[in-house]
């Protein structure tokens, strides 16, 4: 079975929220996860990031992107060394969510040497369908379910603002 990237994005976002990430960090993770798996990168990195909440990459990497964008603002091309926190492939996926063209120029130990060109839009990525990461998707499905409110009669009757029969 294969998954669309939109499904992965939505599921990973909910999973991160279910695991305790605030909404924006969860949304960043969702976008990065869809690219990460669409690029065929290591699924385990995503599972580790979820396990590390409420700390770790999911909390750190959105701020690293903020720092990068801020440093690059007003320049044509900016170069910055960014610590990976032991997750270089996941950092690459986060970088690929940016609207600007970015390039990993080199890897130095536990950091990536990155350039960002604020005058050029990020190229369209040729991403594949997501397959073969059943364990991660199962983990994310369990975490995502933590964001759902248990059903109740009141909720069912009034929550959607509609009745349950439409024979008209």
């Amino acid at each position: 079975m294969s998954w669309s990237r939109a499904e992965v994005l939505a599921l990973a976002t909910k999973a991160a929220r279910g695991a305790g990430a605030p909404p924006a960090q969860a949304a960043h993770f969702g976008r990065a996860a869809a690219i990460h798996l669409g690029q065929g990168r290591d699924a385990a990195a995503l599972g580790q990031a979820l396990d590390a909440l409420p700390a770790g990459a999911i909390m750190r990497m959105p701020l690293q992107l903020q720092e990068l964008l801020l440093a690059a603002h007003g320049t044509v091309q900016h170069r910055l060394e960014i610590p990976t926190g032991g997750q270089p492939s996941l950092l690459r996926s986060y970088l690929e969510t940016l609207p600007h063209a970015t390039e990993v120029v080199a890897a130095h130990g536990d950091s990536l040497d990155v350039t960002v060109d604020t005058t050029t839009s990020a190229p369209s990525l040729r991403l594949g369908r997501v397959e073969g990461c059943a364990a991660l998707l199962a983990q994310m499905t369990v975490l995502a379910a933590r964001t759902f409110v248990p059903d109740s009669e009141t909720s069912r009757r009034a929550g959607a603002g509609a009745g349950t029969s439409d024979n008209d």
Binding site: F148, V149, D151, S155, G159, A160, G161
Partner: peptide, 20 residues
């Protein structure tokens, strides 16, 4: 605003009268 576990239907609740 919330998402119900029932087929993930989006719903709206009363904070002072309902769980969730």
């Amino acid at each position: 605003w919330y998402v119900s576990e029932a087929k993930q239907e989006p719903r709206l609740g009363d904070r002072f009268a309902e769980e969730g």
